[in-house]
Amino acid sequence: MKPKVAFFDFACCEGCQLQVANFGEELLDILEVVDVVNFREVMSENGEDYDIAIIEGSITNQHAVERIKKIREKAKIVIAYGACACTGGINAMKNNFEMPEIMHYVYKDDAKYFDTIPTKAVDQVVKVDYYVHGCPVYPKEFVDVLKCVLQGVEYKVPEKSVCTECKLNENECMFDKGLTCMGPITKAGCNSWCINNGNICFGCRGFVENPAKNAAIEVLKDHGLNPELIIKKINMYNTVLDEKLKKKGEE
């Protein structure tokens, strides 16, 4: 029997799910091995009987907390899918502000009608079995993770920087082009997708484990970025990871 798969979205742009819809012919191979029962973006059926829950988006209000807990109870396997689910993603930028302040900034006087909490990655609320990082996810890595799920083995997110994959692809270094890049402190696994296509790394996969954050700030300063911009660049995808690192440091 093929495992039943359900896609669910929380606070996100649903762009990561779009990566699946964009697979083209390879999607047929995927559908040979799994049974998709719930996937709002591409089908009308919404089956509630599933083995594998693929979660896009971060947890940003109390309703989402309850909903993700229910999904966790039903699913045998939970996959955090995309930056928002894995690390809080760009939604976590709001955690750098006081809640009332940021609520007012977004909703003005209507802020009182909205319920919000500091952004959480999925694993800050429920146990996560697999991670597919990225904004959006790198399609090949999603397939790799899926293969591990089907085999019942662990998927190890590479413990190295985007630079290692970028060098293997022999791209001209963005720093040599006079640009700056988050590659040196960002988790690999995307095969330096952006740099291969002429863009810098924005760090969407989040920090490497044990990042040399201070050294990275020095490198960016050395390349002409002002300290305020550097912090913003780092916070864009790393706010929750930073919170976790601080907590680990305190322990």
């Binding site: 191979d29 995927i30 040979e32 091995v33 397939v143 790799d144 899926l146 293969k147 089907l150 085999q151 190295k160 920087s161 630079c163 290692t164 060098k167 293997l168 590659g183 040196p184 402190i185 490497v208 040399a212 050294a215 990275a216 490198v219």
Partner: peptide, 27 residues
């Protein structure tokens, strides 16, 4: 040092490697 791994990847005498298995979707 950022531990980005660039110095060893570009070195003509570094040869360390890792080995992984990959399998088709049909397992």
């Amino acid at each position: 040092c950022l531990s980005c791994g660039t110095c060893t990847n570009v070195c003509p005498t570094c040869y360390c490697f890792d080995i992984n298995d990959d399998i088709d979707l049909n397992l």
